[in-house]
Simulated assay, not measured.
Amino acid sequence: MEVLSSRVLLRPADPEKSTAFYRDALGLAIYRTFPGGTVFFLGQGLLEVSEHGDGGPAGPAGLWLQVRDLDATLAELAARGVTPDREPRLEPWGLREAWLSDPDGIRIVLVEVPADHPIRTDVRAQ
């Protein structure tokens, strides 16, 4: 499986308090914000502090793995005996996601970023 980028996901009991801690107490720089969450720079990685949108069980932490082609990645994983917990779907925030779990139940979010998504926007002066 080819991973393009990754981040650690925190789903705290009080997202606002945790966001303030990482932003204000630790002074982490913000990579981006979106309704319900903030993504911080974390050295060579990213840390997302956000609400859990679907109300299902997820635990307090998870992994976010961006892949080039979600369908091809799921086919590759199926050939290795990996079955997703949730099939791919387009989320309200514009990303295609499928969910897996590791043997301890840690959620792994496989993400494909559509070509027209703001994450792919070139913000450099033109």
Rank of each mutant, 00 (worst) to 15 (best):
E91G: 02
R107A: 01
A78L: 01
E91V: 06
S101V: 12
V82K: 06
D71K: 10
A115N: 02
S50I: 02
D54T: 12
V67C: 08
V67D: 02
I106P: 01
S101Y: 01
W64F: 15
L47T: 08
L95T: 09
V113D: 06
L46P: 00
E48D: 14
P114E: 03
P88H: 12
V67I: 04
D116I: 12
A61V: 14
P114S: 01
G56Q: 15
P60S: 13
A79W: 00
E48K: 05
P84D: 10
G59L: 01
D54M: 07
A78Q: 10
E48S: 11
A72D: 13
G94S: 09
D104E: 15
P60V: 08
W93E: 08
E76F: 05
L110N: 04
A61W: 06
G55W: 02
P57Y: 10
P114R: 04
D104I: 00
L90R: 14
E51L: 07
R86H: 06
A72Y: 03
P92W: 06
V49T: 03
Q66D: 14
G59N: 08
S50R: 14
E48R: 05
V82F: 09
D104C: 07
V111Y: 01
L100Y: 02
D69H: 11
R80K: 15
E76H: 11
L47N: 08
L74C: 07
G94N: 09
P60T: 05
P118I: 03
R68L: 13
H52V: 05
W64I: 03
V113M: 11
A98M: 02
V109E: 13
W64Y: 15
R96N: 10
G62N: 07
P88A: 08
R89P: 00
L46I: 00
A72R: 11
P118N: 04
T121K: 12
E48C: 13
S50Q: 13
V49L: 03
P92H: 07
A75M: 01
L100K: 04
R80L: 12
D54G: 07
R107N: 04
R80D: 09
S101F: 00
G59S: 06
I106S: 07
V82T: 09
H117I: 04
H52Y: 12
W99L: 14
R68V: 11
G62T: 09
P114C: 02
P103F: 07
R86W: 03
A78V: 01
D102N: 05
A72E: 14
W99Y: 15
P84N: 08
P88Y: 13
L110W: 04
A79T: 07
E76P: 00
T83R: 13
R120N: 14
G81E: 11
R68I: 05
